[in-house]
Nucleic acid binder design. Structure first.
Lengths: 117, 117
DNA sequence: CAGTATCCTAATCGATACTG
DNA sequence: CAGTATCGATTAGGATACTG
């Protein structure tokens, strides 16, 4: 998956970046954390029925990539809080915003192409 | 996959955009076509051993999304040519460039986070 | 050169149930 | 509330061989 870097055309830096979007819920969770820290249960409800396991997998990946951080808050009621790291925030505000802007202006074209099959 | 749009947090427009990057070779092929039209065999060699079937699947998807177009050129030797549509070019020049820029400035951070497991 | 047809493996996503 | 444990369905990606 990352061992084709010798070839001319493959830009592995680009691949490393696009790999961040290969999982269905990652961008959704990132966007959901943009407004501030959220608890696990919040993310489950606001995404409308995302499965426990899928959220666990997603958060694990985001934590492993340093895009999200986890904090235990002992304040009553004790709970766990997930929030964006500076790195995660820069991803949301940069490339993800660019994507959102693009889909705003070109979404209709894309949909039209997809439907004309 | 696209039927969670009722929920509050899920931004399906963002999802529609990030879905364009969920396949491994799509961005690579798009980037490879940015410099101009390419033939099938060119894409196979420059990507360094991409499998026939995978390239076929990838091109099919890009065609279906209206990001790439296919042309038969009868000129000797007759061959088939793939090139970016205006929509595809706008995706490469906009969001994909934003991603490339981000990874240029934040790639080290990302790698550091991934390795500190 | 362009494209199709199988088969295989690994991984994601989803569903259900259970634990600290 | 937070998280783990299974199990199943689907699919992307890869390998090999063959056709127009």
């Amino acid at each position: 998956m990352t061992d084709h870097c010798e070839s001319l055309l493959v830009d592995c830096r680009l691949r490393a970046a696009t790999d961040l979007f290969t999982h269905m819920w990652d961008p959704v969770i990132l966007a959901g954390l943009r407004a501030g820290p959220r608890r696990r249960v919040d993310l489950l409800t606001t995404t409308g029925g995302l499965r426990d396991k899928v959220l666990t997998d997603t958060l694990r990946r985001l934590l492993a990539n340093g895009l999200v951080e986890r904090r235990r808050r002992p304040a009553a009621p004790p709970h766990v809080e997930y929030s964006l790291t500076p790195l995660g925030a820069s991803l949301v505000d940069g490339p993800m915003r660019a994507l959102a802007d693009w889909i705003t202006t070109h979404g209709d074209e894309l949909l039209a192409a997809q439907e004309s099959l």
